[in-house]
Design a protein around this nucleic acid. Structure first.
Lengths: 163, 163
DNA sequence: CCGTGGTGCTTGCAATTGCAAACGGGGCGG
DNA sequence: CCGCCCCGTTTGCAATTGCAAGCACCACGG
């Protein structure tokens, strides 16, 4: 793919602009790019950088993501459905935190797996709350307490610590 | 633009690369960019285009969106927490496990914010009173060991999604 | 001792971005 | 008719991207 869908992104921008009933120059001004450059972008003669793309998205008042997807710069994949993928994709976590979360999650899975042998990756939310199914080792919870405690401002509603 | 905000994206990439334990050249090859250019990107001397950014994300096996957010190219309003949604939707977890995971995740988020003071224009309301603890206490990890041991094979090569 | 292979960094250089200026054209008022 | 303001487009040109080649450094082994 040496030549991404630059044409389509241009068409998409022009389409959105015309739909918004604003002139090329107006959008250029709103986006903070020059008029001629926007013209070239819309006709696929130029391959706008990420910054320009973002500014244009702002000027158009549309989602940056929609534009990036159109530009083929983001996999059009749906949001991660399973926990591990979600953790891996979370930019706010450090790699270490990520690994710890994954470890904990997997250990939970193993516990659950022992009593309930179901390895379906895609699952629907279970509101059925059975508060008495997982043993949840003491030492584990003990180690977590300081974090769980500080993370919620005294609003620890869950029985993370139930004698 | 003598000092663009490219620094953070470069640092982020380097961080991710080092945590993935791969060399600059390896990532460059995986991403399909030249080694020197990647070097310059990581040090903030260059402002990579969207395509390059996307390729780097692929090479790092991380979400393109995460990278774009770091680069400030996507409004951060969208990815609040896919992780929590995923956790809630996972039928393999007990309600209790779910809550613990969420607690940990949230505490991690707070830690990261504290230590990683990134230029987030949209900071979530934090209680200014959480000066507790360091990054990730060993005792924490130690407590996890018995559970993590079976799940970790020493290397994070397993991918939940391919291609 | 010197070669080989690894790391990241510096140096020119072609290609491209992105812009200021200018161009052709369509309405409208003097 | 002419000037004026808008539209989108074309044309050079400075600045930047992105790369091939080469540099310095370090560990390992003949």
């Amino acid at each position: 793919m040496a030549l991404p869908k630059v044409g389509s992104i241009g068409e998409y921008i022009r389409e959105q602009r015309q739909q918004a009933k604003i002139s090329l120059r107006q959008l250029a001004a709103a986006a903070g790019v020059s008029n001629p450059y926007l013209s070239q972008i819309e006709r696929g003669l130029r391959k706008p950088s990420a910054e320009i793309l973002n500014q244009i998205a702002k000027g158009l008042r549309i989602s940056s993501q929609a534009l990036y997807v159109q530009a083929g710069l983001i996999e059009d994949r749906e949001p991660p459905s399973d926990v591990i993928t979600a953790i891996r994709a979370d930019a706010h976590l450090s790699e270490r935190q990520r690994q710890v979360l994954i470890d904990i999650y997997e250990s939970f899975r193993k516990e659950k797996h022992a009593e309930d042998e179901q390895t379906s990756q895609n699952a629907r939310p279970r509101h059925d709350s059975d508060p008495d199914d997982g043993p949840l080792p003491e030492e584990f919870l003990a180690a977590l307490e300081p974090y769980a405690a500080t993370s919620r401002n005294g609003d620890v509603t869950q029985e993370t610590k139930e004698g």
